[in-house]
Amino acid sequence: MDQIRESLLKTSVATKKERFGKTITMAALILIGLVVISIFYFVASKGLATFFTDKINFWDFMTGKTWNPSTNGSNGKPQVGALPMITGSFMITVLSAIVATPFAIGTAIFMTEISPKYGAKILQPVIELLVGIPSVVYGFIGLTVVVPFIRSIFGGSGFGVLSGTVVLFVMILPTVTSMTVDTLRSVPQYYRESALAIGATQWQAIYKVILRAATPGILTAIVFGMARAFGEALAVQMVVGNAAIMPQNLTSPASTLTSILTMGIGNTVMGSMQNDVLWTLALILLVMSLIFNIIIRLIGKKGELK
């Protein structure tokens, strides 16, 4: 009998190795999938207990302005209005993104269009380094520099939305800048050349051609920065004041979802209503990060269509 013919019909060592490799790599991937599913399951089941087990009204929770879980309000129900934290989180996120955006875009244009040499040699490494700086370091600097500075100008304690905004602005600036730089670099060179060739000034080429082409990418960078700001816990918690009240102005002590969460989770008993409401805050964070994710996807899809 033909030996080669025989061997063709057997399962070779290579096939066995292939099966092995495919199985273990797939197992690793499925493990990650399971982790994500269980994160959602656990956080959701804990967070929803507020409404299903502790019978707290959803709208009261989302719109109530008093956060004092251990005492009951005039209606006999615990005072768990999360609006102060939700407001705080959104204010800080939006404000820091508004401040960071012009700086990030300006710096990115400078690095890619005006002075690519200087940008690549000096700014790029510094920005990459700053992207990696731990958030507690930002928080610490906020605490020792920003808070006293704001106190000396506006009076009060210095803790509050403004301090949080400044800290997060500096913190997301490197991230948004480096993502914008990547986007601008991905705009094909001939866009620039053809704009300049028809007599446009450099600024016209940048403003009318390059920025237009890069808009989806820049938006993604900004939303990404906002997602990071919204989910940041410690840096904000260190400077915001952690007073669960509606922010009166930018310099009065306020709070965010993350700050109340970090402060509270260790001081409450697992399974109690006081603990459940904190998990609901975590659930809001989770849902918000999903929403940011969807926005980024939508921007990506629109960008493709162009």
Binding site: D2, S7, L8, L9, K10, T11, S12, A14, T15
Partner: peptide, 15 residues
């Protein structure tokens, strides 16, 4: 090939 249809899944592709 050698009396076998090597396009069939019964044949070990790596071999």
């Amino acid at each position: 090939y050698r009396g076998l249809d090597i396009n069939s899944r019964a044949v070990d592709v790596y071999e």
